[in-house]
């Protein structure tokens, strides 16, 4: 049985995806990545993540709108969504879309892992 927490990473940059896959796998998570905003929902269905890391701007898609769609869908609404962006100013714009947290790029690795674990623990308590 595999009890690793599952994280879905949505980011249009392949370098970020590969480094996230390496990092999060090393840190004991099961990771699935996608560079396309439009297949987030099919990934949600097939992978059933415990947490989503979602970039604010994904080529052709607004990550915030995707976040809102996830939060509007009752079966996925409880999955914590952490949004990432290289624009620190984006932090102020995400709360209306139901995101559970914001991480500015480049991020401190310890801080990223801390936020992920906080969210995972928080969602277990619920």
């Amino acid at each position: 049985m595999n009890n690793k927490p599952k994280i879905l990473v949505v980011d249009d940059d392949p370098d970020i995806l590969s480094v996230m896959e390496i990092l999060l796998s090393m840190k004991g998570f099961e990771v699935e990545v996608t560079a396309r905003g439009d297949n987030t929902f099919s990934k949600l269905e097939s992978f059933q993540p415990n947490l989503i890391l979602l970039d604010v701007l994904i080529s052709g898609h607004d990550g915030r709108a995707i976040c809102k769609e996830i939060k509007d869908e009752p079966q996925y609404a409880n999955i914590p969504v952490l949004m990432l962006s290289a624009h620190p100013g984006a932090a102020a714009t995400i709360s209306d879309y139901g995101a559970d947290g914001f991480i500015s790029k480049p991020f401190d690795v310890e801080n990223l892992l801390k936020k992920i674990n906080e969210q995972l623990q928080g969602s277990k308590i619920e």
Partner: peptide, 17 residues
């Protein structure tokens, strides 16, 4: 600046590892 931040993000993670 935005384009520069993406490689900095990756590099930072690799260095951390």
């Amino acid at each position: 600046s935005h384009e520069l931040k993406t490689p900095v993000t990756s590099l930072n993670v690799y260095l951390h590892l």
